[in-house]
Design a protein around this nucleic acid. Structure first.
Lengths: 140, 140
DNA sequence: ATCCAAAGTTAGACAAATCTAACAAGAAAA
DNA sequence: TTTTCTTGTTAGATTTGTCTAACTTTGGAT
């Protein structure tokens, strides 16, 4: 419920759970650790926190799942990441660096700044971009 | 010498020492604390670290001074701050928020991203530059 | 069916950054 | 000069996030 004060670190873990589930269908502790370049016990501790906050669930010795709330928060963070990465690339930053810097920026920028960056990106993404939960009701 | 690994926190303290000296001629512990919204003992501890790193000096119970190296590093951080704040304002962010967000961004962005932001700002600030062919002064 | 390696967990150490409380020094007032 | 207030310092507790080492569990190879 009160995810309003997620630390940068916990945001990173939550986002990574989401990304791994999107990519592999499952988020294993080992893979989270590898992706974030930390050791498995760090992941375990982070998962304990995220469970306390009601954002993830996990049956012992298995993959991490997202609660509905966790899904919501993770998607929000990931959207910020995608927005910022695209923004940096538009400025001419290389993809790898854009990804890395977006990863830092996504935790600290104010809503106002994010909004302005969105505005800045708007005109450009007026193309056939299969965006997510936007007003784009795709035609199946 | 080896300031390459200044933590975000220490960068903030160093920058604030510099700003207060520019504004008031002196950086007092009390004012640093107020400006960064921390308590005085936190400042004292940070100053101990910055002294160890050879970036500041201080006679007991008096204002904090910058070493030559400290001056150099602080100026670099402040320049980043100014660049980023201007950048955000150019995107339409309000001044107060631009200042706050610049303060976070200044510690995390890669040299590449900072360079691209500089490029982005260039055309606009083409005022007092007689002949700056390629004034590359980043990186050490 | 048993064993073993890989994956996950638990316990505890450590570092960074903050705080509160208590103490010390300097300046200002009396 | 002596007292008092402000400023600065020191000591130690707390929180967060990381690590290593040691353990437990799972599941595949034998």
């Amino acid at each position: 419920m009160d995810h309003t004060k997620l630390s940068q670190s916990l945001e990173d873990y939550l986002e990574m759970v989401h990304m791994l589930r999107l990519a592999n269908g499952i988020a294993r502790v080992k893979d989270i650790a590898a992706a974030l370049t930390v050791k498995m016990p760090s992941v375990a501790k982070a998962m304990i926190e995220l469970k306390k906050l009601g954002l993830v669930t996990q049956e012992p010795y298995s993959g991490v799942e997202l609660t509905e709330e966790g899904q919501r928060v993770a998607a929000m963070i990931l959207n910020r990441h995608i927005l910022l990465k695209g923004f940096l690339i538009k400025l001419g930053v290389s993809e790898a660096i854009a990804d890395k810097d977006a990863c830092c920026m996504e935790h600290i920028l104010s809503a106002e700044t994010l909004g302005k960056i969105e505005d800045f990106m708007k005109p450009a993404e007026a193309a056939p971009s299969p965006k997510k939960t936007k007003a784009v009701k795709n035609k199946k």
